[in-house]
Design a binder for these strands. Structure first.
Lengths: 209, 209
DNA sequence: TCCTTTAAGTCAACGAATCTGCCTTAACTT
DNA sequence: AAGTTAAGGCAGATTCGTTGACTTAAAGGA
């Protein structure tokens, strides 16, 4: 259900203070950052502005980080969805389709198209599972691995720079906060200790190595 | 240009080791987290696995964080694009359309649709600029502010929990790393000190308060 | 005053990436 | 043999983004 209905040249109030006392705000609200609570565990560090700043940081950092690989993808006629698939397949060779679906949280249809492209281009291969022959275990081919690496390098530069600037303890803090933002199930997923279900990435389906 | 061509029941290799020695990897590679370099500023903290973990953290945290507001949005027939617009308009009352475009990095067309919906639903109002009457300064209406707050609260819970668990110094580290990942221009944008261009959020167009 | 540029909005057409619902095939499980 | 699971497919739709060209009104420089 679309909502649009803008068409006539709406009348506009000719003064910039439409609703309640909403005067112009400065570029960004001042109270935050190091100033607020020092590096200590001050009591006020949960003020609303802090949280809103985190939203901003997240939006912009994610936007810029993902954008850094887009040039390469565009040249190849691939999209971010392809990148995500390459990333996770590269990180978990012989992953099953359903595990990949769980990681990406998209539907079979959506993944199907992306995966079809990648297989057609011979960036990904499917192998029949040995233990369960219904499964199509996904792995990168050599060209697939090469492409994934090219994409990775672009983001690596940024992340290395960010890590280096921020320093080790900051990186540790970064990780802790990021983990805290995830759903508990997701957290378990990326946590080496306490593997989700004994065996596979998601559900044990280990077959022997 | 679509690439698909999957249709015939492709022959599959019936053994799970398609390419080079890609045997099954464990749930997640072991070397990382606190184990790796302690909380100290070890020298090895830039190893590839660290970087790849950051990618994962980013993907999952962003996914889970944004998903937390989706329930409300869906009820209203709005999308994430609407949420983003509400967020930034709420954060910068009387923002101009072009400033908003710069923040979101999308095209006028895309924003146009979203904004049209929001104005039609009276969640956002446009007011003619006083200094420059070509501008349509955007602000939230009271219902718009109320909705934005509902959406915010969902995310706030997560972020507060994450901040609280991680602790103050971790939060500071989080911010530093996030800033480091952005484009320099973006960084200037969210940095109160050193405002981008004197005045407005993006370009000075301050008119007096 | 004339001319150019800018801010906003619009039309038309398209593309990427998601979704739902329903169905098939093959293989595993009981 | 019957039921369930893994993968894949078709049809159709939605959301959100794109490009390119154009209009209108206002601002600003010469």
């Amino acid at each position: 259900m679309s909502v649009s209905s803008r068409s006539s040249p709406r009348r506009l109030p000719d003064y910039p203070a439409p609703t309640a006392g909403t005067s112009r705000t400065p570029a960004l609200p001042p109270a935050l950052g190091e100033a607020a609570g020092g590096a200590g565990t001050g009591l006020l560090f949960l003020r609303e502005e802090q949280i809103r700043l985190a939203q901003d940081l997240f939006f912009f950092a994610y936007r810029d980080l993902t954008a850094s690989a887009d040039l390469i993808l565009e040249e190849l006629g691939l999209g971010r969805a392809h990148h995500r698939a390459l990333h996770f397949i590269g990180r978990h060779p012989a992953i099953t389709v359903s595990e990949l679906l769980t990681l990406l949280r998209i539907t079979k249809q959506s993944l199907g198209r992306v995966l079809g492209d990648l297989v057609a281009r011979e960036l990904v291969v499917q192998a029949q599972g040995r233990a369960d022959r219904r499964q199509r275990l996904l792995s990168l081919t050599d060209p697939g691995r090469a492409l994934e690496r090219r994409l990775f390098e672009r983001q690596r530069e940024r992340l290395v720079a960010a890590y280096r600037e921020a320093g080790g303890p900051a990186v540790e803090g970064f990780r802790r906060v990021m983990r805290g933002m995830m759903d508990p199930e997701t957290r378990r997923l990326i946590d080496p200790r306490d593997p989700v279900t004994p065996g596979g990435i998601i559900s044990e389906r280990r077959s022997g190595s």
